[in-house]
């Protein structure tokens, strides 16, 4: 599998996801500067976490206008898998590849900690390594992770089996304070209609190495490699 990681000014999880991808794929991804207008052939496009353009206008808003995004949109439209993590998810909503928006956390503060997620669908290249209903642990680290969409959109996500992850407690139950940011319906990650674009606020790359205290995230990358190799 050949992955590319798009690097925006202010990306800061680009190296972290590259390490996780290399561990899974056995070869490093290509790192592509946001000013590029061409993309090399790729089996997977990753938009990493960070603070592109400092989040100064609105998280992800400026990066969504970067030159490289025209080609990212075209590839996504052609079915190439895209993974947006944290700021990458924000960029995906800002550029219209995913619906909804990520607003300020309901607690109004940045929050960094492990959260429990319930896998809501295994029907995507990104989540195929998990079982539906399975509970996994990924870290979050964001100020603007409060997913919002109008009720019709949320219903369409639900009806289309496009909610990939929900915040839950260790037993897999949603509600009761397990939601760290106020996201509607405890949504942590969603798929597009074609199911090739996943955006999620939690960071699978941060628990993809037992040395760091867990490896639930590694399975996402392993699953992608299996599907795309």
């Amino acid at each position: 599998m050949q992955a590319v990681v798009i690097v925006f000014p202010g990306s800061n999880c680009d190296r972290d996801v590259a390490v996780a991808l290399e561990r899974a794929a056995g070869k490093p991804p290509l790192m592509i500067w946001h000013r590029e207008t061409d993309l090399p052939l790729a089996d997977l496009i990753v938009l990493p976490g960070g603070f592109s353009y400092g989040d100064y206008l609105r998280a992800g808003a400026m990066a969504a206008q970067s030159p490289v995004m025209r080609e990212v949109r075209a590839r996504a439209g052609a079915g190439v898998p895209v993974l947006g993590i944290c700021n990458g998810f924000q960029i995906l909503t800002e550029c219209g590849l995913l619906p909804g928006a990520l607003l300020r956390n309901s607690g109004l503060a940045f929050v960094c900690r492990d959260v429990w997620l319930r896998v809501e669908t295994a029907d995507s290249v990104h989540t195929r390594a998990y079982r539906p209903g399975e509970v996994v642990r990924f870290p979050i680290a964001h100020h603007d992770g409060n997913f919002r969409a109008d009720p019709d959109t949320v219903r369409a996500l639900e009806d289309g089996d496009r909610i990939a992850f929900r915040y839950c407690n260790p037993a897999g139950e949603v509600g009761g304070g397990a939601n760290p940011n106020g996201s509607v319906d405890d949504i942590a990650g969603i798929l597009n209609e074609r199911r090739n674009v996943l955006g999620l606020m939690p960071h699978p790359e941060r628990l993809a190495d037992p040395r760091l205290g867990g490896a639930d995230g590694a399975r996402m990358f392993a699953g992608l490699v299996q599907a795309l190799a």
Binding site: D16, A20, V111, C112, P139, H203, R206, R211
Partner: peptide, 16 residues
């Protein structure tokens, strides 16, 4: 305090 700090970025934090 420390949950407001990203203490895991760079993916090398072995003891938090």
């Amino acid at each position: 305090v420390w949950e407001q700090y990203d203490h895991m970025v760079m993916a090398d934090t072995v003891r938090r």
